[in-house]
Design a protein around this nucleic acid. Sequence first.
DNA 1: CTTTAGCACTCACATTCCCTGAGTGCTAAA
DNA 2: TTTAGCACTCAGGGAATGTGAGTGCTAAAG
Lengths: 354, 354
Amino acid sequence: MELTERKKRILRAIVETYIATAEPVGSKAVAELAGLDVSTATIRNEMADLTELGLLEQPHTSAGRIPSAAGYRLYVNELMDRQQLTIQETQRINEALNLKMEELDRVIDRAGKVLSQLSDYPVFTVAAAKQRVTVKRFDLLMVEENAFIAVVMTDNSVVKNKLIHLPDQLSDTQLQLLSAVLNTSFVGLSREEMEEALDKMETHTAPGAFELISLVVEFAIEVLDDQGRQKFRTAGITHLLEHPEYRSLDKAKPLMNYLSEENETSRLPMNLNNGKSMNILIGPENVNDALKDTSVVMASYDIGDNMKGIIGVVGPTRMDYAKVTARLSYFADSLTRMFGKELPSGEQEDKEES
Amino acid sequence: MELTERKKRILRAIVETYIATAEPVGSKAVAELAGLDVSTATIRNEMADLTELGLLEQPHTSAGRIPSAAGYRLYVNELMDRQQLTIQETQRINEALNLKMEELDRVIDRAGKVLSQLSDYPVFTVAAAKQRVTVKRFDLLMVEENAFIAVVMTDNSVVKNKLIHLPDQLSDTQLQLLSAVLNTSFVGLSREEMEEALDKMETHTAPGAFELISLVVEFAIEVLDDQGRQKFRTAGITHLLEHPEYRSLDKAKPLMNYLSEENETSRLPMNLNNGKSMNILIGPENVNDALKDTSVVMASYDIGDNMKGIIGVVGPTRMDYAKVTARLSYFADSLTRMFGKELPSGEQEDKEES
DNA sequence: CTTTAGCACTCACATTCCCTGAGTGCTAAA
DNA sequence: TTTAGCACTCAGGGAATGTGAGTGCTAAAG
């Protein structure tokens, strides 16, 4: 059986009205909406064909049709209009993002929140660091005779610091010596290499000096760890409850739990999209069980040259794909542009020990 | 009418079984559970009295009784047992908190999550800074000839930094000069005073130098702002859905929205508890409308000498007060102890400009 | 005076049954 | 190939009914 132009128009009408109403679409509604001058009987025949092709489904014999996963897939691939954002929306987005002086994480968080509000779906964000981060330089600042600030700068231009308290007093010259050791022996090393270098150093260094060195190096390792970590965040989870498919709590609960869990690695299955900058996973196309009845639309963006981020929208398979993709791609573009002009920046920590 | 010992025992039995079952409690159940050797008829008489005293309520004439807000209040004030934590629980809590080297925010977040899991209710946390924070010292570190790191340390021992890019080149001596100006003119000032000082300086300083100064001072102002901000966070909101009173989405949605909104100021109505370290607000005792059918149990803890934090549990009025208060007070004590031995620490930022 | 047994009464909730209407597939004519 | 007509299906809504847990009251017993 062939997929005629008319069948496509009918499919499109069904997908779009189902997206809008969340109720099975009957032949009468299609006859009115598809703009075809044929009777409902003809539509019925066509709909029967589309069902046979696996593009539509019937919840029960005497109900209208709803799109199948394959139907949605065809819709997003061929039939969907590219939507335009309103001026208000672009303004809203720009306002939310263009607040200068914000740290990276906060910008991403804010982006997630606004996107969630604009789309009425939950949004997740992932910021994936580059694989191998190294320390570019160490600086030590004396605060009191028994405390100093360690400043670590990484090769992706992130600077973090920590207030370190010491058991004994320390002189200025000792501090300079320490700084020299750190900057000669631990710069340019990855996390693992640092640990190795530290181990080696232990044997042929005075215990007191070694303790001092390891305090700072351990902090540097933490910094690198933190850089390497994927940061998964979500926003607007409660939007799920607005959609009829999650009115029953049995449906809503697992998904909400999945989204609010913080087991970061389990989310990775939404693999870094293969090349394309926008990726749509419809229902069963998702690997993870919790997402089987759910669609995920995600876009990637660049954070400077080294990092990559993903921002995605989660919703029922009956998702307003046209609306979501339009907003999402605008966000991804804006974020890329934004992190492109300035260098990447990340938050930093300070700690304290005794 | 007098509140006899027997009435109290009956009230207690009703509160506790209602907490466990979420269903109105009838005279028969009380007769069995309260451990009184009287008939159901006697219990009925007593229950009628308790209703008249405003301690119990009847959803409809032919149903059992449920505790009123006043009933819960009496229960938590007089009747409730102080619960003991199991060894596993204390271990779990200690593990979650004793991860060293974590930054303040992350420890608090983690505490919220674990408490939420242990109590099966949503948890919120607030970290309130001390009122007036000032900068204790500035440090500037040259990175390249057109970029340096500004390090700001506040009087509550928080250190933050930012990578600042410049339009033109800058010499080492210029940087030292800048550092001297900052450390003489802007140390010890509050946020407002800093802005003032900066304004004054503008008139009698060379434009180029002023621009440089204001770059750093503006960063310092941000830091102080961030310190002053109350940080409101929530964890485990989805736990709400496990409790029958929120099975209807009309009930759950407003509360979930309220908790996940980030309008931080609107939450303040839960005023810094008046002296006592643990505070329980039952149903209508809450000022905020979204919480009228909800109970809030909160405890405060100290973050070093200057800051104060609140950690609280939100749930239906039918909340397991005994369980929650036990765990909550353990958390608050642990947090106080934890932030007590080390000095307070907060996360910090780095930014970048061109 | 307190407690208890007995009894009639109330009312939410579940079950059943029926009806309605939207929507279908099929057939036969255009 | 399209259309009109028709019998059929089935989910959802509403009314009717039954059930049972629980109550308040009364009168007798302790």
